[in-house]
Amino acid sequence: MNVFRLLGDMSHLLAILILLLKMWKTRSCAGISGKTQILFALVFTTRYLDLFSSFISIYNTTMKLFFIASSYFTIFLMYSKFKATYDSNHDSFRMEFLVVPVGGLAFLVNHEFLPLEILWTFSIYLESVAILPQLFMVSKTGEAETITSHYLFALGSYRLLYIFNWVYRYYFDGFFDLIAVVAGCVQTILYCDFFYLYITKVLKGKKLSLPA
């Protein structure tokens, strides 16, 4: 565990807490893509099946359980408790366009052709593109609430920090996982446009809005 990895995890945790807090305080999930949240639940479920097969640390287990539980709780809030505020008309990205190709790729390009390994690979690939429905929703409505922008910034920072973590691990631990690194870079690149808008607008006190 190095400092980049820890900051990355904390950033990920912060993102989830911001999202939950936003929904709980405003009693609304307006502007949040339910599709992206379903994909994240699928990501955590398929990746953390090793909870049943191997124990790494209390930290590792706790975080995994929190990520899984919070993702299903988010879905419950969006599709049940605060259903009336869910903006389904603007959340029109088709999940199968991501899940099907990613599933195929996980079968073809993996470290080892074993069920758990293929599911892990699937989750890594899926996570890299799971934010697309959310970004699509922001671009469709042309704006995002400031709190939603903070959520997205924390979520994007998490994967950027993981890249620094991989660079560190490559040089100091001799560790390199090509699948995780490539997918992580793709994931981070998807946030670049958003990072630019966040820094030039949201940090200057303006609401994130896209040019018409």
Partner: peptide, 10 residues
Amino acid sequence: DVELDDKDEL
């Protein structure tokens, strides 16, 4: 080579 049994990253 990648160690498959030790996925400590989240």
